[in-house]
Design a protein around this nucleic acid. Structure first.
Lengths: 346, 346
DNA sequence: CACGCCGATTGAAACATTTCAAGTCCGTCC
DNA sequence: GGACGGACTTGAAATGTTTCAATCGGCGTG
């Protein structure tokens, strides 16, 4: 409470002990096992702590304990609200377990990701949750080798050497395209890239599978590759789409995420196309902005918060349960139909 | 490198020293002052570290050093991309100073904010950057009293007892409304709330000032209060706006942030209004989604990354410079005119 | 040959906390 | 009155790192 001036270091248990006239072990007991301390002493110690403005030193605590009381989530793209919602889910679970959550953002850069991981390992965090730039990168397996619990979020573990949490992206691709076929579309674009992203490949794979099952000609499902999954790239895909000769031009687009879809939507509206009549659009993720777009966006919903909560649960299990077995949690995506695919095509 | 099994604790400097056949002080020298160690010894030690998979224990380091190598940013609303861009700016500066950045999200909840701050103080972070729920709350002054460098971000310090970084919100309100008057609007709505938020008050104040200067009747600048600054609230403000009798209904709206503006825009489009002809809209912040909206949004731009960079600079100055004096950095907002206010009204 | 110097290395102390075996004090029971 | 038990408190050890004064060994100089 008392302003403690810049005189020197922050008060420690030792100072509190001196002020309260007890041993330092007793102060520690007040902190960690209040029930074993007599009421009178406890009160005296608590008053001393308040007076000095004592705050536990987490480093010392950690040093003694050997591990920190924190989880970490390294997210792929801070600009994509999807990852925020995932982080919220993780935070909820962390809070329930009385752990802190460090949120880091690699912003798609592998070097930044590695740097963050380095620091987290140095901090001895209890576990690392990560949506990696490249799920097969070496520094990931290194984490596991160190014995640090870790979970892939929104990515699958190919090797099975650790836990992962994701939705079934192939299925997601299927339901998106089936919805479009259902609405009467016979020429559809798949917008997304780069193909190095597993998600992009799988969503496309699902799209192609259902396309073939309905007996559509392969060349009528057109892949418009993008450099990244951003609004800007979506806009540029829109330009390319508009540039196609009209007999080849798709009447609908399935975008690998909502940012692309929003960019595409914006381009379409600017170019004077009516959505969905001239161009229907389906996104992926169902971020809040999707519902809020000027033409509310049909999207494939991922249970974002639950993804996060489950990931946190798995990493905590790995951290605390000696019989832990790695688990690949898979969620089922669901189509949320809105105005951007609203009408059945004649 | 070598997978170190779950046998026990992670290797420490002591283990490295033993493996390399040197004293533990030498290992520390290799880590912190490589130049004083002979090349041969250094190499031997480095090999031992690699073999054992040694990673510095940051807690011990911190304990000894008395302070951590980290800054923290407690943001107000993880769902608002504006704060992300600010965080990016901070991270850039932190990276340059070789510090970690912990990003926390209070999500507008005072209790969560307090909890985060508690943990950060326990971690002995070097400085705290915060966009607080309430800039006058007690726990903020407590931070300062503890002697922890801290900076208000996107808020002004009323007391002047600490640094702050923000744009001139009154001016922001002025240029937004002046732009609308310029476009021929004679009845304008201000959408924003709650009034407990300083920003809302100041933007409204600027709006009113310029309104009066142009000799407009006070009652033609209508305040539509909202409960929060979200897309949803923007939509609901749209409904209220549509419900006004037509002779009272504004032809333009100035929203206290872009999320509100996007919500309002969405409602307008859904309701069949043409933007900007039936309703012109100005937002605030100029987040990326503003430009990407179906009708690109005119907005008052804040230098978001620079806000973050400056805040980081100030907190570092407070942390390292004994002659530090508190500074209220003020930036000038700029209007970015786009389609949502595109035409001059007859 | 003794001396001092220099570069390289060492050992011990310090940081703040937690834990735990050992200790003290007091009352009760035989 | 002495022993025992229980409630409470204590002191020391341990955690991993950094720092710094001290030491060591070798070499050149007087």
């Amino acid at each position: 409470m008392t302003p403690h001036p810049r005189n020197g270091r922050a008060p420690s248990v030792k100072d509190v002990a001196a002020a309260a006239g007890v041993s330092l072990g007793t102060v520690s007991n007040v902190l960690n096992r209040p029930s074993v301390v007599s009421a009178a002493t406890r009160e005296r110690v608590e008053r001393a702590m308040a007076e000095l403005g004592f705050v536990r030193n987490e480093s010392a605590r950690q040093l003694r304990a050997g591990t920190s009381r924190a989880l970490a989530y390294v997210m792929l793209d801070g600009g994509n609200p999807f990852f925020h919602d995932v982080a919220e889910g993780i935070e909820t679970a962390a809070e329930a377990a009385d752990l802190s959550l460090f949120v880091c953002n690699s912003n798609g850069r592998s070097d930044r990701e590695a740097k963050h991981i380095d620091r987290l390992v140095q901090q001895r965090v209890q576990g690392i949750l990560i949506t990696p730039v490249d799920p097969d990168a070496g520094h990931l397996t290194e984490i596991a080798q160190r014995g640090i619990p870790f979970v892939l979020v929104d990515r699958f573990s190919r090797s099975g050497g650790h836990c992962s949490v994701a939705v079934d992206d192939v299925l997601g691709g299927r339901i998106a395209v089936e919805h479009l076929i259902d609405r009467g579309h016979r020429r559809v674009a798949f917008v997304g890239g780069p193909s190095s992203i597993g998600q992009v490949r799988e969503r496309l794979q699902g799209a192609r599978a259902v396309w073939a099952e309905f007996g559509m000609p392969e060349e009528d499902l057109i892949h418009l590759p993008t450099e990244a999954m951003t609004v800007n790239e979506g806009r540029s895909a829109g330009e390319r789409l508009a540039g196609l000769p009209s007999r080849r031009r798709p009447t609908a687009a399935f975008c690998a995420n909502d940012l692309l879809a929003l960019g595409l939507l914006q381009h379409a509206v600017t170019a004077g196309l009516r959505v969905p009549d001239d161009l229907a659009i389906v996104g992926f993720d169902d971020i809040d902005f999707a519902a809020a777009a000027a033409v509310p966006l049909t999207s494939v919903r991922q249970p974002r918060q639950e993804l996060g909560r489950t990931a946190a649960r798995l990493v905590l299990d790995e951290a605390t349960n000696p019989d832990h077995v790695h688990e690949q949690a898979t969620f089922v995506p669901a189509l949320v139909a809105r105005a951007s695919t609203g009408t059945v095509r004649r």
